[in-house]
Design a protein around this nucleic acid. Structure first.
Lengths: 207, 207
DNA sequence: GGGGACTCTAAGCGCTCGCTCACCTTCGGC
DNA sequence: GCCGAAGGTGAGCGAGCGCTTAGAGTCCCC
């Protein structure tokens, strides 16, 4: 049960808010199809077929194919933001919070690679308005990470030359996991999370 | 340095080997179109139009639209490999060679973002045979970076826990530049290259 | 048990896609 | 000055696209 299980791993919880059931099945089918082939190469017939429905059924629940991508992007970014926000606001030193943020964010990208891939790489397929809405969420994600780094500098824990650039690099490390991570590869999401957390701490001058 | 210059920056040199002139113009037009809209969202009419030709002219020089992507991917990966190989084989300490590799590789991704975007993110749009050929080049790129890191460990310069994971992280940092870099943004390619080189040296435990 | 809301389907519309084909130029060699 | 190759065009083919529509099945409330 590769696909269903992978999607179930940490993602169905996020799709739980999507109702009714048929709409959720279509959305999950769309995530899988977009992740595999890309938004433009995916046909509405393919999405409906994966959900076990006729092509027309899609349009009962969604106005257009783009609305599916929009919904997926928004829910995915909200989940990403929640992950980072949780890590940023917990108790602990800046180093602990940064390591927590990176490892959980990386775990999300690795374990939910299907969703993460769509969320991170299909943004440009959205129309201008939808893209701007999603970009605002993305800036909030950046801000959470930057906040932790600034805290660490203020407390003297971190030694950082360029806050904005280092923040971008941290995000790069996390997001790029969605590009290369392979479920059948040698790593478990936990391992990549721990490894990248260690590397990020080195980047900010801890140890 | 708009599109023409950006393309000229480090890329037309690479396209110089493409002849005749019309074939090169089509190829450059395809790079721009693929980078802007993605492979599947780009039409052959758009490519031909950008090159100032009729839609049919494309098929005099290329058998299919996919052949264009294949050619772009191969030439781009060969250029990337050449950049990394040059840095890996120069004189100097492992730290100097790693910093050189990262900064020049990042400069290529930032300055030639148009090409790099196609090369790094449109791989899955190729057919199985072509993809496998390109993946072989990509593995060679990884190997060059891993080689430098292993040299640094052997010489005692670097302190690295996981060679394979650290190599992947270094590549992530470089490649992801193609996703976020904006020509009109606050950074010059040189600056990003220097910043990321510094961060990578921290990751391998130098300083 | 009849009516309305909701869900889904079969069929297909209009359009654009990748690609082809018949034909037209341009030009160097003799 | 004629000829064949090379490089180009306008028109258009078959296919598949996103999406619509007319109508059938199902369920719940009265």
């Amino acid at each position: 049960m590769s696909t269903a299980e992978e999607t179930a791993g940490g993602e169905t919880s996020a799709w739980g808010e999507v109702t009714p059931d048929a709409a959720r099945r279509l959305l999950i089918a769309a995530v899988e199809a977009f992740a595999e082939r890309g938004y433009h190469a995916t046909t509405t017939r393919d999405i409906a077929g994966r959900a076990g429905m006729s092509p027309a059924a899609l349009y009962i629940h969604y106005k257009t194919k783009e609305e599916l991508l929009h919904r997926i992007s928004r829910i995915g970014h909200e989940k990403a933001l929640e992950i980072l926000r949780t890590a940023a606001r917990r108790e602990g030193t800046a180093a602990e919070r940064l390591a927590d943020a990176v490892s959980s964010f990386v775990r999300w990208h690795a374990g939910g690679r299907t969703t993460a891939r769509v969320v991170q790489y299909e943004l440009d397929s959205l129309g201008p308005d939808a893209r701007e809405e999603i970009l605002a969420l993305r800036r909030q994600c950046d801000a959470e990470v930057r906040g932790i780094i600034e805290d660490g500098i203020a407390s003297g824990e971190f030694d950082v030359l360029d806050v904005k650039g280092t923040t971008l690099a941290v995000m790069s490390l996390c997001i790029d996991v969605a590009r290369w991570f392979n479920v059948d590869g040698p790593w478990a999401p936990d391992e990549v999370g721990a490894l990248d957390a260690d590397l990020v701490l080195r980047m900010v001058g801890v140890k």
